[in-house]
Amino acid sequence: MPGFLVRIILAIQDFYLLAGAALRNVFRGPHYSDDIILQMDSIGVGSLLIVVLVGFFTGATMTMQLARALAQWGQQGQVGTAVAITLVRELGPALTALLVAGRNSSGIASELGSMKVTEQIDAMRALGTDPIQKLVTPRLIATCVTLPLLTIIADFVGLFGGYLIAANLVDVPGSVYWSTAWRSLVWMDVAQGLLKPFVFAFVVSLIGCYYGLRATGGTQGVGRATTQAVVMASVLIFVLTVFLTRIFTSHLVSSS
C-alpha cells in the first residue's frame, strides 16, 4: 500500500526533524532554565515513588523465583549474582523507562496536545517563541538527566528488596548476598545500565512531544495522541533494549 508507506516515511521524517531541532536547541539560546527545572521536578521527583515501589517489588519477586530455580542445583547462595546482573543490565533500565513512559510520555503528549488543539502552540509562535525551544528541549534535557538517576535508584532499591527476601525467606546470609551481588558486576554492566536509560530518555520525551505536537481534532485527538505516545514509547523501549543489549554483548564476546 503506497499511501500507507508514504505516511510512515513522512512520520519518521517528521520525528527526525523534531529530534534534530530539539537537539540543536540544546546548544543554542535562548535557554529556558525555569522550564528545565520544572520538568525535572515533574519527571524526576514525580516518578520517584512509583519507581521505588516497582523496583523494590521487582527485586523481591526476582529473588524468590531465582532462589527456587538455583536451589535445584544447590546454588542458592548465588542468588545475589543473578539478581544484580538482571537488574543492573536489563530490568532496572527497561522497567524504569517503561514506568516513566507510562507516566510522562502520556503526560507530555496530553499537555502539548491540549496546547496544540487550543492554538496555544500557534500563539507561542506568534508571540516570538519557538515551541520546540520552549517546550520540547526542556523536556528532553530534563528526561536525559533524571531517567539515569531514577534507574540507579531503582537498581539499588531492587537489590535491597532482594536482600530482604534472601535474608529472611531464602536463608542466604545478607553478607553473602551483597558480596556475590557486588562481585558479579563489572564496569561494562554499569556502563550499559546507564547508557540504556540515556537512550530511553530520548524515546520517552521526544515520542511524547512528537505525538502531542501533531495532535488534531479536539479533545478526542488529544486522547488519541496520549495513547499512541505510550504505546509507541513502550514498544520502542523493548526494541531498543534488544539492539543495545546486542551491541554490549557482542562487545563483551569480542573483548573476552
Binding site: M115, T118, E119, Q120, D122
Partner: peptide, 8 residues
C-alpha cells in the same frame, strides 16, 4: 486566536 489561546 479563535479560542483566545491564553497559556493555561
Amino acid at each position: 486566536f479563535q479560542e483566545s489561546a491564553l497559556f493555561d
